[in-house]
């Protein structure tokens, strides 16, 4: 989930702040996730589908994977910087399809159609798996998912603060200027092409980190894990959260990732839902209906998303406080 939040922040920098429509986020997630597996994983010569791994320390692998994603973003930026609006959207959509094909072809790296297992993350001898070392906090055993949860939390907070600082400072103003009017921005001394390329770079690095965490969480990745649906989910997150808002992106990510789980948990008590495979509406389908509808309704009724709702609530309470304040 925190992986999703990081990815959503990254996409929001590109789409919400800079105004560049991108459907290619899944591709950068794939680059991050798969190159982490390649860098830190062990080679597997056994079986019909051998793949190689460099066996680097996981932390180094993660950093390098983020670097490679950034590089992929830079490589795309000659196309990205020239295209505008929907053309960029479709070009990045193409990138997802071409990317899956390329990853399937280099099966030495990606494991091909069958994918490969993701190496456990470890930090200075502390592994993020079920045991080794055993860890109890307040009598709760910390297993793989708890450990990854906190790893994600720390990384997400770091990414959140960095994005806030960047967007509230000079680069953020420059990017918003590019979004609102490229001509005005360039007249005011903003190098439009370079800022757009930098936004792409930053966004793809965030996506790369998000991809690494995604891979760690699901434990096994194949190129098909990063299909166009992933890009759509990320776009839904930032639109639901509110375009251009870092906190909103996190809220949107929480909503979209949690929805299927929550519906799955309560599937038995919601009328009209049935077990998968019985012909009725299963909870994963219900989740798809729900967030398809949520996206449409939010855009029609609250175009500023969750961040906008939060902002107007704050305004209302401030006004009420001002009215009640003794004069």
């Amino acid at each position: 989930m925190f992986g999703a939040a990081i990815g959503a922040i990254g996409l929001n920098i590109l789409v919400g702040t800079t105004g560049q429509l991108s459907l290619g986020h899944a591709f950068f997630l794939a680059v991050g996730g798969i190159s982490y597996c390649w860098l830190s994983g062990e080679s597997n010569d056994a079986g019909a589908h051998p793949y190689v791994g460099l066996g680097l320390p996981p932390l180094l692998g993660m950093v390098l994977a983020v670097g490679i994603s950034g590089l992929a973003g830079l490589l795309f930026s000659p196309i990205g910087a020239r295209l505008k609006g929907l053309y960029l959207g479709i070009a990045s959509l193409g990138m997802v399809f071409v990317g899956i094909h390329v990853f399937n072809s280099v099966d030495q790296v990606s494991g091909g159609h069958n994918g490969r297992t993701v190496p456990e993350f470890s930090l200075f001898g502390f592994t993020f798996d079920d045991s080794d070392p055993e860890l109890y906090v307040l009598n709760v055993e910390f297993e793989k998912f708890e450990r990854l949860w906190y790893l994600g939390l720390v990384l997400a907070v770091g990414c959140y603060l960095f994005a806030r600082a960047t967007l509230n400072g000079r680069p953020g103003r420059a990017l918003r200027a590019v979004r609102d009017s490229e001509i005005a921005a360039s007249v005011n001394g903003v190098n439009v092409t370079s800022y757009r390329a930098k936004a792409f770079l930053l966004s793809s690095m965030y996506a790369g980190l998000s991809g690494v965490l995604f891979a760690l969480a699901i434990g096994s990745v194949a190129p098909e894990s990063f299909a166009i649906e992933i890009s759509v989910q990320y776009l839904a997150m930032i639109v639901l959260g509110g375009l251009g808002s870092v906190g909103g992106a996190c809220a949107g990510a929480a909503f979209v990732t949690a929805l299927p789980y929550v519906l799955g948990e309560y599937a038995a008590s919601i009328p009209g839902l049935s077990e998968p495979g019985t012909g009725g509406v299963s909870y994963s389908e219900a989740a798809r209906y729900a967030y398809g509808a949520a996206v449409i309704l939010v855009i029609i009724f609250w175009p500023t998303g969750l961040a906008g709702i939060a902002r107007s609530l704050k305004l209302v309470s401030m006004r009420r406080a001002a009215r009640n304040a003794p004069t």
Binding site: G19, L235, A236, A293, A294, I299
Partner: peptide
Amino acid sequence: RVRSAHMASLTIMTLGLDLIITT
């Protein structure tokens, strides 16, 4: 209803419709 909305919003809106119908 949403003629003046941001391009990303419109795109994701059609994607939302697409999701509902195809699901």
